[in-house]
Structure formats: structure tokens, C-alpha cells
Design a binder for these strands. Structure first.
Length: 777
DNA sequence: GTTCCTAAACTTTTT
DNA sequence: GTTTAGGAAC
């Protein structure tokens, strides 16, 4: 970061060193409300951390009086690290830096008892909510009215983000509309079930904190007094509930809630003035409207917080001018925005590389080949990222990456914690921590199989109701149900295990709780002894989970079961990003927000994918998709690749794809289009619907149904296994796709060994020997 | 109560 | 093409 140094006293301050005038203003402003409009790559993290560092260093307030909200846990950790680097680890102790959800969990765990919840409440993820809603829809036979689980879940979530609870909804509904009445009943029962289970869903974490503050001004005052400076990052993606939370936290404290011994400065009436608020955002990067994010929060900030100061950061320190030109050109097509132009002093840099493949496999091969070239030219794998619109697009990429021996990791997507065996064991842990959680209890009741079927489950649930207690209470009292001796014994055994663990929950280490469960239920042994070949992988996952708990305990020696469960519930896709891993990162465009890489690939830049088909119907959909593309482009520092395929297979059948409308918005001279190597002789007619140059169009598509074997980059669907085949430098081999070649190097050991092969016609490739479709000649 | 087979749904993005 | 849900058979 280099800016012309102005000769002022401030230059002596290392915390202002290297900042441009706007950035300095943003660091130094002491306005009660400050909006920093930070374009992509404009050094906003540097500004935020230095602002916080100055507050602490100059003793304007204690670290514990600072609340900073970031979008992901990873961003929070990064910010803490950078502040510690500036003022020292000791001096930074006590700051709250976290996501909205983590901060609210922290508050709720402290205050839950105030309003009828227990401190060990469970956090339901979307899958848990859906499971519960599914049961309710069934019980109510709501499906006959056309209710689907996802529609109900979506509507409840939207209402909660708007701070409308079941009672609020009942006041505004039409009592003559049976579907509205039914929905209200579902909403009511869902709310009641959560309360009974001592659980909050994701949306509750925010909404219930707001309700808590509104219902208990004394509790609210506690936090209003404590936090004197509040910073919110990615403000453009806050929803109404989050906005309301900010409003609650930035209320002045009434004199009646001011303790006599307060050291805080009082206002004229004897109260404590409102906390200062700093928000950072960029409406061009708002991509979470589907989650309730309301762009008005940032647009109307100045009106909401009177006397607010606004600082604009437009200079970009990340990307080349070529990349910025493309980004500016694309985003300029969104009409309802405040004009803003990113600029840089870096220079034009390389052209954007465009590629049109025949199929998604062809496209993936291009990506893999380009990554290999970049790597050989000195770009580390960790500085390369591949983005896509939907998670389903990873498959083709992964297939090719595995076969090319490229080290990669997928961020987000089908997560570890969504696997059945992991959910099983997590359900045990939850049942131990929160005996009221019926959902977890139902899951473990017959896992592993102990002969407790649906009939017994219902009997136990009814018994719990009769006792007026939890499922756990019913289990202990199973003898009263008059079931068979075998089933009764199994139930009592489970109840005993849970009792035993619940007794030790405050003292036992988390890995010990888990291993006790695994041993007593024989979980691992059963998987090992199974003849289902997939169970071997499941057993490995179970061991991985044990390793995760050990890791957790190592990092949090004081952490107990509830802390572990909280951490697991709130980890986001981008959070487990380990920069030191030395791998290429694959992720959705949404996950890419806030990250940056030397080389970026945006794949699947096609109509119906980017913009996505589903977005067309939504108001503001195409504009939001454009912002998504903009976010993707602006992640790149040095080189950007845009690729698409002419055909794409979804659901097993192949459809013709056409280039995204957004590609036409990038000036032609910025992109260097390359041909697909699998397409044979180049055609002279290259046109796109609009007449702009740049693409091969579908005129050259083969007739439908024609086998794809004629293309050099064809990918065989099944993964083959060459067993223990070993290759040495100089060996001649024949590859199904690439033809004959000579091995020029071999790296790696055992099943992970990779051969570098110089092919006669296809060039140099790296292949995973074990599975590449090749034979030794 | 458990296991196995067929059918249908599935893909937007996530804390 | 894959995964999951539901039903039939044991």
C-alpha cells in the first residue's frame, strides 16, 4: 500500500503509515456514526484494524468496550490477529470480534435463563429445522393444502428475519384463508417445539436476542453500557433483524440503568450516551438478498443515524487495471447504484483469458492445464482459486483435478458434519448436553440398531408427555411402559449411558465424552465389522471426528461440551480455509466474498447458470447475479480466467448452453479468447447473438445423441484402478485421451504417485498413476 | 423391526 | 446421474 506522503504530524504515527487521505479520514473520524463505503480491494481491513488499534493504543476506551462484527469467523480471527500485531496481544484482550451469530450465542448463553431457556441450548441448523418442520407438516397433514417443507421453512425464516413471530403473524393474517391459518398453526407449533427442546434455530439467534433486549431493558442496558464502540463489516449484507440488533445496542442508557460507580462519561440527563457506530460496506457487493439482506440498511444509513459521516474508498490496491476495467464495465449495467469507479496505480497487467469448452469436462481440463502452467511459472497453488455458481459444478472439476494430480480443496459444499455417521454422534453429544432436545434423542434412539422402532418411539414420546418431562425422563422410566424385556433393557442401557455422561459434562474433556459414547455403543466396531464397503470410509470419518474434538480441546483447554457444540454449529464454509495448505481452492462465488487470490478462474459463465435460472423470476435477481459476478472478478489480483462450456449435463441429460449476458458487458479488447483444444480446426465464423466477437456458437454442435468420444479431452465416467502399476522416467505409455507419451518425471509415493508425461500430440500432463486411463507399453 | 428394491426428486447461493 | 424416501418382503 503506497500513497503520496503528505507532510503532516500524523506521518509520525505508524498506525497511519502508508494510508491514503480517505483511509486516514476513516481511521481518525470520531463521528458518532461513520459509514465507510469501501470498494472491492480498497484496503478496508487495514482501515478497520488501524481504527481499532488507535482506539486501544490512545486509551480512548478499553478493548472490552469494543464490539466488532465480521461476516465469517475466519474474518474475525484475522482481524483479531492483525489488531494484536499492531498493539500487542495483551493490549487487545477482551475485545469482542465475531460474527452476528457468535456474538448473539454468547449473549444468549449468559442470559437464556432470563426468558425460559437453559444455558445449554442447542443450535438447530437448517437440516434440523427442516426435520422438525417435516414432522409437523406430517402431523398436521398440511401437505394436503399444498405445503412443502422447504416452503414452510423458507417462510418462517423470512418472517424471523423481519422480526415477525407467530403472534405477530396472527395479527396480520386473513382468518378466512385456510392456508394462512394452517401456516400460523405450523409456525406456532414450530416455535413451541423449539422452546420445549431448549433450542434456537439460526434465525432465532439474532431475533431472540433482539426480543430479549426489548423485553428486558435492564439486560439491554448491560450491553449498551459495555460496548462503547461498535463496528460492523459487510454492512450491505445485514438483514432487518441484524439492523434492529444494532439499533438496540446503540441506544443511550437511561439514567435509571446507570450504576453509581460507573466510570463512563455521562450526558446532561445523567444517562450514558449512545455507543459510536462504524459500518463498512459496498452496495455493489450485496449478494445475500435471498437470506433477507436489505440493501436499504446501507443506502439509508445517513438518514437512520443523523449526523453520520461518510467516507469513500475508491482506490484499489489489489487488482490490475485490466481486471478493474472489466469489473467496472460489468457493474455499470446495474442502474440503481451510486456511480463508483475503482482505479489502481498497479498498471494494466495481463489480459483476461477466456475459454469456451465443448463440455464441462473440456472446460475443467482447461482449468487444470492453466493451473499447471501457472504453477510452473511460479504461482503457488494456495494463490489460485476456482469459483462457480452452484456446488454441483464441483464434480467435473474434481474429476479432472484428481486425475491430473492437482492438490485442491473444496470449501463448503457437502460438509463433513452433514454425513450420517457424524450427525449420529453429534446427536449423542447434543443429547448429553441438552436432555430436552427431542430431535437429537429421536435420532440416537435406534442408532445403532437396538430394536427400538417407530412404535416404541411414539410410546416413549407419549410417556414423556404424560410425565410432563423430557424424552430422557421417559427413557429412565421405560419399565413402566410394559414393553418386551429386550427392548426395555436396551432403553434403560441408553438412559444409563446418557445419565452417566450428563453427570460428568462439566468436568469431562470433550474427546473423552465422545470416545465413551463410541465405546459404549460399539459404534466403530459395528462399522468395522460391516460388509458394506462404504462403512470403512464412515469409520474413518468417525475417527476424524475424534481428532476434531482433540484439536478443539488443545486449542480450548477450558472448553467443555457446550462450547464444542457451539463452535461446530457456527463454522462457515470459508472458516476452515487453511492458507498454509498449499492447495488450489474451489468454492462458490458466495463463499469467495472477502477473499483474494493471485489467479482466479470463474467457471460456467453461461446463461441460466450465471445469472442462474432461478434468479430470473425474483425481483432484483439478475442485478444481484451481476453483483455476484462482480464480486468474483474483483477477487483476482493478477490474472483472471473466464470459462464456459457449450453443453452442460445436468440430471444426466445434456443441454446446450449459451454464453452469459455478462460476458458481452466486458470490453472485447480486455479478453483474450482461446479455442477449445478438443474442437479440431478453428472456424472463421465466431459470433454471439448480439454480434459481438468472442465466442464459438452452437452452430458447430454435434447432433444430439452422438457419442462424445471424438473429442480429445473426453473424460471417462468411471474411475479406473491400475492397482500397483509403477512407472519410471523414460517409460513409454499410452493414454486413452492423450495418446502415446514418455514419462519425464515421477513424484509422490504409493497410491498418490504422479507421473509427468510428455505426450507426442497433447503436450505435457501430470497424471495420478493409480487411476489415469493409461497402459504401459 | 429390518432389509432391500424401486421410484422420484434433485440444484441457487448460507449463517 | 445420484441420492433419498417409501413401500414391499422377509
Amino acid at each position: 500500500m503506497s500513497t503520496p506522503a503528505s507532510a503532516s504530524l500524523a506521518d509520525a504515527d505508524p498506525l497511519l503509515d502508508g494510508l491514503n487521505p480517505q483511509q486516514r479520514t476513516a481511521v481518525l473520524s470520531r463521528s458518532a456514526a461513520l459509514l465507510i463505503v469501501a470498494g472491492a480491494g480498497s484496503g478496508k481491513t487495514a482501515v478497520l484494524t488501524r481504527r481499532v488499534a488507535r482506539l486501544i493504543r490512545d486509551r480512548e476506551l478499553w478493548p472490552s468496550q469494543i464490539l466488532a462484527i465480521t461476516f465469517t469467523n475466519k474474518a474475525a480471527a484475522e482481524m483479531r490477529e492483525r489488531v494484536e500485531l499492531l498493539v500487542g496481544r495483551e493490549a487487545a484482550q477482551g475485545m469482542w470480534i465475531s460474527t452476528f451469530h457468535s456474538a448473539c450465542v454468547r449473549i444468549l448463553r449468559r442470559e437464556a435463563e432470563q426468558f425460559g431457556f437453559g444455558a445449554a441450548f442447542t443450535i438447530y441448523d437448517s437440516a434440523d429445522s427442516r426435520a422438525l418442520i417435516k414432522r409437523l407438516v406430517k402431523e398436521m397433514q398440511a401437505d394436503t393444502l399444498g405445503f412443502t417443507v422447504s416452503a414452510v421453512a423458507g417462510k418462517i425464516s423470512r418472517l424471523k428475519n423481519e422480526l415477525v413471530d407467530a403472534e405477530g403473524y396472527s395479527r396480520q393474517l386473513n382468518p378466512n384463508d385456510p392456508t394462512e391459518v394452517m401456516f400460523l398453526e405450523l409456525f406456532r407449533r414450530y416455535t413451541a417445539e423449539l422452546r420445549r427442546a431448549n433450542a434456537f434455530d439460526f434465525d432465532d439467534l439474532i431475533a431472540q436476542t433482539v426480543y430479549l433486549f426489548r423485553a428486558f431493558p435492564k439486560v439491554a442496558a448491560l450491553y449498551q453500557r459495555r460496548f462503547r464502540h461498535i463496528l460492523i463489516d459487510e454492512y450491505q449484507d445485514t438483514n432487518h433483524a441484524q439492523y434492529a440488533l444494532i439499533r438496540e445496542l446503540t441506544r443511550p442508557v437511561e439514567p435509571v440503568h446507570v450504576p453509581v460507580d460507573t466510570r463512563v462519561e455521562l450526558d446532561a440527563t445523567g444517562g450514558i450516551p449512545a455507543a459510536s457506530l462504524t459500518v463498512v460496506g459496498d452496495s455493489d457487493q450485496s449478494i445475500y438478498a435471498f437470506r433477507g439482506a436489505d440493501i436499504r440498511n446501507i443506502v439509508e444509513f445517513e438518514r437512520d443515524f443523523t449526523g453520520a459521516e461518510v467516507v469513500l474508498l475508491e482506490q484499489n490496491y489489489r487488482s490490475t487495471q485490466t481486471i478493474l476495467d472489466a469489473a467496472n464495465a460489468v457493474i455499470a449495467n446495474n442502474f440503481d447504484r451510486i456511480a463508483k469507479n475503482l482505479f489502481t496505480a498497479v498498471g494494466a497487467g495481463d489480459k483476461i483469458v477466456g475459454f469456451t469448452g465443448y463440455t464441462q469436462h473440456d472446460e475443467a481440463q482447461f482449468v487444470a492445464d492453466e493451473i499447471q502452467k501457472l504453477h510452473e511459472a511460479g504461482t503457488p497453488y494456495s494463490q489460485i482459486a476456482v469459483f462457480y455458481r452452484t456446488n454441483a459444478q464441483t464434480r467435473a472439476l474434481e474429476e479432472i483435478f484428481i486425475r491430473s494430480g492437482l492438490p485442491y480443496r473444496v470449501l463448503g459444499g457437502t460438509k463433513f458434519y452433514e454425513r450420517a455417521e457424524i450427525k449420529d454422534l453429534m446427536a449423542y453429544l447434543i443429547a448429553v448436553a441438552n436432555p430436552a432436545d427431542g430431535l437429537a434423542m429421536r435420532r440416537i434412539l435406534n442408532t445403532p440398531k437396538r430394536g427400538i422402532g417407530p412404535a416404541t418411539e411414539t410410546a416413549l414420546a407419549n410417556h414423556a408427555d404424560e410425565l410432563g418431562g423430557t424424552m430422557h425422563d421417559a427413557l429412565r422410566d421405560a419399565a413402566a411402559l410394559g414393553l418386551g424385556p429386550k427392548v426395555t433393557a436396551a432403553i434403560l442401557d441408553l438412559a444409563g449411558l446418557l445419565d452417566e455422561l450428563a453427570d460428568g459434562v462439566t468436568t469431562m474433556l470433550v474427546p473423552d465424552v465422545l470416545t465413551t459414547i463410541i465405546e459404549r455403543t460399539n459404534y466403530l466396531e459395528l462399522l468395522r465389522g460391516s460388509r458394506d464397503p462404504q462403512d470403512e470410509a464412515r469409520a474413518e470419518n468417525v475417527e476424524e471426528l475424534v481428532a476434531v474434538t482433540r484439536d478443539f480441546q488443545k486449542n480450548n483447554p477450558e472448553g467443555r461440551l457446550v462450547d464444542f457444540l457451539t463452535e461446530v454449529a457456527l463454522v462457515a464454509a470459508a472458516d476452515d480455509l487453511d492458507d498454509s495448505s498449499g492447495t488450489v481452492s474451489l468454492m462458490t462465488l458466495h463463499t469467495a466474498k472477502g477473499l483474494e487470490y493471485d489467479a482466479v478462474f470463474i467457471t460456467g459463465v453461461e446463461e441460466n447458470l450465471l445469472p442462474h435460472q432461478m434468479s430470473a423470476a425474483e425481483p432484483g435477481g439478475p442485478a444481484e447475479e451481476r453483483r455476484l459476478f462482480y464480486v468474483g472478478i474483483t477477487r483476482a489480483r493478477k490474472v483472471l480466467h473466464l470459462s464456459l462450456a457449450m453443453t452442460r449435463s445436468t440430471f444426466g441429460d445434456t443441454t446446450v448452453a449459451s454464453p452469459s449476458r455478462y460476458l458481452q458487458e466486458i470490453p472485447t479488447e480486455l479478453i483474450d479468447w482461446r479455442d477449445s483444444p478438443g474442437m479440431g480446426a478453428r472456424s472463421s465464423t465466431r459470433s454471439l447473438g448480439s454480434g459481438r466477437d468472442g465466442f464459438r456458437y452452437s452452430a458447430s454442435l454435434p447432433p444430439a445423441g452422438k457419442p462424445k468420444t471424438e473429442w480429445a479431452n473426453r473424460v471417462t465416467a468411471s474411475v479406473r484402478d491400475n492397482g500397483d502399476l509403477t512407472l519410471a522416467v523414460g517409460d513409454r505409455i499410452r493414454h486413452v485421451d492423450f495418446g502415446d507419451g514418455t514419462v519425464s518425471a515421477v513424484t509422490g509415493v504409493g497410491p498418490k504417485s504422479i507421473a509427468e508425461v510428455q505426450f507426442e500430440t497433447a503436450g505435457r500432463k501430470r497424471l495420478l498413476i493409480k487411476i489415469a486411463p493409461l497402459e504401459k507399453l
